[in-house]
C-alpha cells in the first residue's frame, strides 16, 4: 500500500519535460492507473517520476488533414466523451468506454496505457483496427511509427530511454464505416479476457475493407489480418463472418490463467470476433 520514495518533477512544458527525461533514468507518470498500484505493491520502484499532467501540449483531441491526433495525456473519459471522436472515430471512443471504471477513466490516459503495453488493455484492439500511429519524442528526435512497430512484446515497446509518447494518430473514419468493440470481461479486474474491435466498409454490397484488432488473447494485441482477408470481397453473410472469425486465433499462442484457459480464450476470440464483425457489418452503410 506504500510506495518506495522517489524524486518527483512536474514540468510545465514539453521542452522542460523532454529535458528531464533526457538523462534516461526518469519514469513518466501519466494517469498513474497502472504505475501507481505497482509502486504501492513495490513491484515498481522508480527513482524519479516526471508527472506530465501539467504539460498542456499533451492534452486534447484535434483533427488535421484526415487524421485525428489524440494527445498522450488525454484521459479515457475525454476520449469516450469527445464529440469529435464520437463523430469522426467512434471506435476509439467505444473502446475507451470499456476501460476500467468511471474513476479510472477520469485519470487514466491513452499515452500511459499504450506505454504500459498491457497485453489485455482495451485500446490496442481498436488502435490496431484503426492502423494507428504513435508519435514519439525525445530531445533531438521526433518519430512517428505504426502501432504494430511500437508494441513488441508483453509490456514491451520500442520506446527508448528518454523517449515519450507525444500523441496517437488515428484516421478520420470514412462515412459509412461500421465499427464495434466487443469484450469478454474478466469479472474481477475488468480487463479483457478477449476484446475484439472491428471496422467494416461496404461497397456494392460487398465488404470492401475489414480491419480487426484483437486484445487479451496472446502475449500482445495484434491485427487479425487473416480474418480481414477472408472477409474482404464477401457479402458479409452470417456464414462469411463465422468462417472468417474462426481463424482469428490462428498462429497465436493463447494465454492461460485462472480465469480462462488457452482453449477457451481462443474459442471466445472467435465468438467475439464474430459478434464484433457482425455488429460492424450491420452498422456499415
Amino acid at each position: 500500500m506504500i510506495a518506495q520514495n522517489f524524486e518527483y518533477s512536474s514540468p510545465a512544458s514539453l521542452e522542460e519535460a523532454l529535458q528531464m527525461m533526457a538523462g534516461g533514468d526518469a519514469k513518466i507518470l501519466a494517469g498513474g492507473m497502472s504505475l501507481i498500484p505497482l509502486m504501492k505493491l513495490r513491484l515498481a520502484t522508480p527513482g524519479h517520476l516526471v508527472d506530465l499532467s501539467r504539460v498542456p501540449a499533451l492534452d486534447g483531441v484535434t483533427e488535421e488533414k484526415g487524421n485525428i491526433r489524440v494527445g498522450a495525456m488525454t484521459t479515457h473519459f475525454q476520449v469516450e466523451s469527445s464529440a469529435l471522436l464520437r463523430a469522426r472515430c467512434p471506435l476509439l471512443a467505444a473502446a475507451a468506454s470499456h476501460i476500467g471504471d468511471m474513476q479510472v477513466r477520469n485519470m487514466g490516459t491513452i499515452g500511459g496505457s499504450l506505454a504500459h503495453a498491457d497485453p489485455a488493455a482495451d485500446y490496442p484492439a481498436a488502435l490496431f483496427a484503426l492502423e494507428a500511429r504513435v508519435r514519439l519524442l525525445r530531445v533531438g528526435s521526433d518519430r512517428t511509427i505504426a502501432l504494430s512497430d511500437f508494441l513488441v512484446d508483453t509490456f514491451t515497446t520500442v520506446a527508448e530511454a528518454g523517449e515519450m509518447i507525444r500523441e496517437v494518430i488515428v484516421p478520420v473514419e470514412e462515412a459509412g464505416t461500421g465499427v464495434s468493440y466487443q469484450k469478454l470481461v474478466q469479472p474481477a479486474s475488468g480487463f479483457a479476457i478477449v476484446g475484439i474491435a472491428a471496422r467494416i466498409r461496404k461497397s456494392g454490397g460487398k465488404i470492401s475493407m475489414a480491419r480487426v484488432g484483437v486484445t487479451g488473447l496472446g502475449p500482445m494485441p495484434y491485427r487479425a489480418v487473416g480474418v480481414e482477408k477472408m472477409l474482404e470481397g464477401t457479402a458479409g453473410t452470417a456464414d462469411d463472418i463465422r468462417k472468417a472469425a474462426s481463424v482469428v486465433a490462428d498462429g497465436v499462442d493463447a494465454n492461460t490463467d485462472i480465469h480462462a484457459s488457452a482453449a477457451y480464450r481462443a474459442r471466445m476470440a472467435a465468438v467475439y470476433a464474430g459478434r464484433a464483425i457482425q455488429a460492424a457489418v450491420s452498422r456499415a452503410a
Binding site: 474478466q186 469479472p187 474481477a188 479486474s189 485462472i258 480465469h259
Partner: peptide, 11 residues
C-alpha cells in the same frame, strides 16, 4: 493463494 487481490477474486 492465486486470488490474492480483488484483481483476481471477483465479488
Amino acid at each position: 493463494l492465486l486470488t490474492g487481490e480483488l484483481m483476481d477474486y471477483a465479488i
